[in-house]
Write a protein that binds this DNA or RNA. Sequence first.
DNA 1: ATGCATTCAATGCACAAGCATTTAATGCGT
DNA 2: ACGCATTAAATGCTTGTGCATTGAATGCAT
Lengths: 131, 131
Amino acid sequence: MTDNEVLSTWRELSARHAAIVSDLERELQDRHELGVSEFEVLDRLVEGVCLSADGKFRVQELAAGVHLSQSALSRLIARLEKAGFVLRSMCADDRRGVFVTLTDAGRVRHSEALPTQRRVLRAHLAATPHG
Amino acid sequence: MTDNEVLSTWRELSARHAAIVSDLERELQDRHELGVSEFEVLDRLVEGVCLSADGKFRVQELAAGVHLSQSALSRLIARLEKAGFVLRSMCADDRRGVFVTLTDAGRVRHSEALPTQRRVLRAHLAATPHG
DNA sequence: ATGCATTCAATGCACAAGCATTTAATGCGT
DNA sequence: ACGCATTAAATGCTTGTGCATTGAATGCAT
């Protein structure tokens, strides 16, 4: 792969990412009052509920998959809590840690927003040769 | 393409983008005191010099290719000017417009940073099946 | 048990981004 | 020539982000 190929690959990746994020941001915000990152976190929580019995997550576990710094994630969760979509609770075995759990309102909001996200992603990614 | 395929495509795109930007940001900042967007703008200017005879750019022309809002780009150029890497000058034919030109210092800084950018991009993008 | 390095999450702070607005210049219609 | 919608770029304001630090809890070594 030549440097020029690497560069054009990077520019295409970057452009696609920007276009998708911009669309997602607008659609999720307008229709469901959710930012992209907020939705992403709710999404991880919903997925995780199926796996872990109690549906509880350490903040740290959420960091993987959401590409945010620890501090940004901390504040994002605080916002979600203020909006009533998650609860934060101390965990007994390691009292430094914090468990994050979805509320019913959070589950509802996520399920409302999910089709919007899927639609936007499909519009950008389905049936293209870009992989 | 199923929804699940779309979703995993999106997550991979997103993860790759985040990883590359994060690396670029760190390397360009540590080694050359340049942000990713700052470098990107310098890069467009350098490329453009080869094309347009006078090497002048309307701010608007730079917007294409750099995925930033108009206001963000305006302030970014102000930062570059303060750092001595570009000059802003009125253009005679349309006095609303602003021409942006590279300074020697800007050209030098860009040429120093270019190998760093190429190295990071190659590390992430060369010789992978992800296209 | 005590001290010390380590880890988790929250917070102070500085900065960059977007939206909406503003200021200035242009051009078009009458 | 005059008014009016439009465009270019800058700016006020709010918000989200990262870095560095803090505070609390843990665990490990002595």
